[in-house]
Design a protein around this nucleic acid. Sequence first.
DNA 1: GGTCTATACTTGAGTCGTCAACGATCTTAG
DNA 2: CTAAGATCGTTGACGACTCAAGTATAGACC
Lengths: 164, 164
Amino acid sequence: MSSQVLSGQTQTGLLHGDADVAWVRFLRAHAAITRELSARLEAGHGLTLSDFDVLVQLYHAPGHSLRRVDIARAVLLTASGITRLLDGLERAGWVEKRSCDTDARVSYAVLTKAGLEKFEAARVAHHGDIAELFGSRFSAEERTQIAELLGRLPLAETSPSCSV
Amino acid sequence: MSSQVLSGQTQTGLLHGDADVAWVRFLRAHAAITRELSARLEAGHGLTLSDFDVLVQLYHAPGHSLRRVDIARAVLLTASGITRLLDGLERAGWVEKRSCDTDARVSYAVLTKAGLEKFEAARVAHHGDIAELFGSRFSAEERTQIAELLGRLPLAETSPSCSV
DNA sequence: GGTCTATACTTGAGTCGTCAACGATCTTAG
DNA sequence: CTAAGATCGTTGACGACTCAAGTATAGACC
């Protein structure tokens, strides 16, 4: 935080102040928006933000199918996190497990028809929420600029299959 | 996500694309950076990102002391989350509970001497990490611009006592 | 004074995700 | 062919946080 003390000393360039203010706002904005976003997604469709994230990946994947490892890398979760998350989606019938003929270690997660419909239904509302809570605060230019700026940040070993 | 499909159509202004890309990068950047940041803070000082956040609040508060409710609002956690977090800091001896003479419901959290030293020690390293992982990616102007842009986002019922 | 609502905090139960350890399979090199 | 090492996935134990419910106190209005 520290903005109580720092206001007025932006622009010095030598102090950490600038970075801190930006970083703290980053943290707070994330907390506030994801809280609201996930509350709506949960209430409206019974999905976690991460659930949705995974569904997006599967939706855009060839054959609506991905190795679990690749999902993990794409959404920045642990392998075990993905196991448990997919567990839920499988129990709900939105995703199926499929084994790989060429490599017995891997198992694919495949979107079912129900899952596809689920996703398409949730997508509209969710994108609207994102637009309302996030996008609407900025002009088109600002949005692309934000994307550019944030794109410089370390994304921790993003695999080639990750599109972001 | 959807950037696999959307690349090339930024700037249309009508599609959700722009907002999505920015939002997804926002999400990913947060996940990647907080993961690394909290790993370092944990390893170096045995503190959670939230722990540190709370210590900052107390450090800058008059008398190094705050009502639990106000901490909660400042760091965007629930009241119960704060109870449990402070529980840990109290057990470690960095924070003390103090009751209020004028209102028996409230209890203050007060930074102890040990807690103050703990914080000052952790602060240097942590600010360095923030600068490295976040701040260093941008120029001073860009940093203030990011702060400005993110400052427009909804901070969910920020109380008057919150400085951000 | 007595009741009614709002606020401050705690607690129990549950969710989401981590890490560490493991079994299984693939790959490579001797 | 076989031993060594990497990769894929799951599991158990655990941590951080949430929500819902409960207790205690404060303030306002009759």
